[in-house]
Design a binder for these strands. Structure first.
Lengths: 241, 241
DNA sequence: TGTGACAAATAAGTCTGACTTTTTCTCGCC
DNA sequence: GGCGAGAAAAAGTCAGACTTATTTGTCACA
């Protein structure tokens, strides 16, 4: 059992959650708390608390006289950061990465447009700083340094949008970018065109040019999507008609 | 205590969740499980399970020797459907509605564009059916019938996009639309222009015209946003610079 | 006066066993 | 074959004892 997670119930969660999201217990499977508690050598109270949390994530449903049933994938709370992390660590990571990148391509351009209208001077400054940091780390395999500034850049944009729902996607974007750098093939330095685009977005926001900030950010996210489709073409859904 | 929710712990959750999201226990407040268990006349196990769930929603943090601390608003899992429902039922409902509508305006146009590429013939048919249903209920105060088809229309679009993250926003959109019809001022029949736009989106999807589907959907969501700003102008964040 | 170690207090965390409640299955009856 | 009573099964609830981590306070020592 994983040792991460605060407390016994936390450790249990870090074992059961990934197991379920990985399909180890496929949808429709029925688990029994008592049996699981014995198997993992924890008390029923600990197991019950873990099951409660899984239930709140819509991963399972607990019913009397039946047991704990794994719910169909379509019902899972896929916006829960913990669920996202579990799934990104699992086997169909490429598909997850693509879903999330498509989400980014919808959200971030709009967020950038709003950021151009609402960003404080401090946020503008931080944005410029991030962009410069990306430039400074764009050559010579300084991937960690580049990643750090890249993540922060997108976080600032999302926060500066002034929209709470956008702001909360900062962690998701961070996961995607980190995943891309660490787990995908990324031997080469980042695309110079992408770096330039970030610099220009920072400029557009500072200049309060919402339309330009939006369009440039759209180019960034669509670029990320194309890059992904080159690396893992099979994750792209087929086009009908 | 609310009687909704399965089981005692569920009822407790339906009491504590809304109380916390409504700011009744402001961020930083410290609760003690024993005290709460006494107050609500439940056993500690039940209270502990409820707290676990609140913790998984990042509404509270539980620490030994300290107690259960309410976390700052910015850390809440605002994409959790239950949290969304609690907040929409609370005092700052207008602000929530606006945040969610802005999210819609970012996501739905892109989803519609993808739907035009990926929708199955069945989904195209259902879309048309929904649009016709909206037309049929657009006059003479048939608000419930109109709402039903409206919700379904947007659900089909999000599902047909083929993107899991988009699809899971169907419930959110349903909440927003339902809230707009039931709780906001909506004496008059729906805007005829909006109805027409829905019909045209259905046509565009059927014709596999992604660009047009996207643009028309953008008009729908931006219209919804404007409508909201007329009804509750104070929920709109100030523009800097 | 400050500082470090040690002790006490506190609240969450864990375990166990008994009991309740709901739901479902089964079996006998009509 | 349908229907109702009863048995069985698994989650749900409760109470109490015990454990552990963390904070806070105290006291000796520098």
């Amino acid at each position: 059992m994983s040792t991460r997670g605060r407390g016994l119930h936390g450790q249990l969660l870090e074992t059961l959650g990934p197991a379920i999201t990985a399909g180890e217990y496929p949808p429709g499977s029925v688990l029994r708390t008592d049996e699981l508690a014995q198997r993992f050598e924890v008390s029923r109270s600990v197991m019950r608390e873990a099951v409660r949390v899984l239930e709140s994530m819509h991963l399972v449903e607990s019913r009397r006289r039946v047991g704990v049933t794994v719910r169909p994938t379509a019902e899972w709370n896929v916006y829960d950061p913990q669920v996202i992390r579990w799934r990104l660590a699992g086997a169909d990571r490429p598909r997850q990465l693509r879903s999330l990148t498509v989400l980014r391509s919808a959200v971030e351009p709009v967020a950038a447009g709003l950021a151009a209208q609402h960003a404080t001077p401090e946020q503008c400054a931080e944005l410029t700083e991030c962009a410069l940091g990306m430039v400074a780390n764009s050559r010579g395999h300084q991937l960690e340094g580049y990643l750090f500034h890249d993540v922060n850049f997108h976080r600032v944009i999302l926060n500066a949008s002034g929209n709470e729902m956008f702001a909360r996607l900062g962690d998701v974007v961070a996961e995607v970018l980190t995943g891309r750098t660490h787990h995908e093939v990324m031997f080469e330095d980042p695309d110079p065109a992408a770096v330039t685009l970030h610099v220009r977005v920072a400029e557009a926001v500072r200049a309060r040019d919402a339309a330009r900030a939006e369009e440039l950010t759209r180019e960034i996210t669509l670029g990320a999507l194309e890059e992904l489709d080159i690396l893992a073409p099979n994750a792209r859904p087929a086009t009908t008609g």
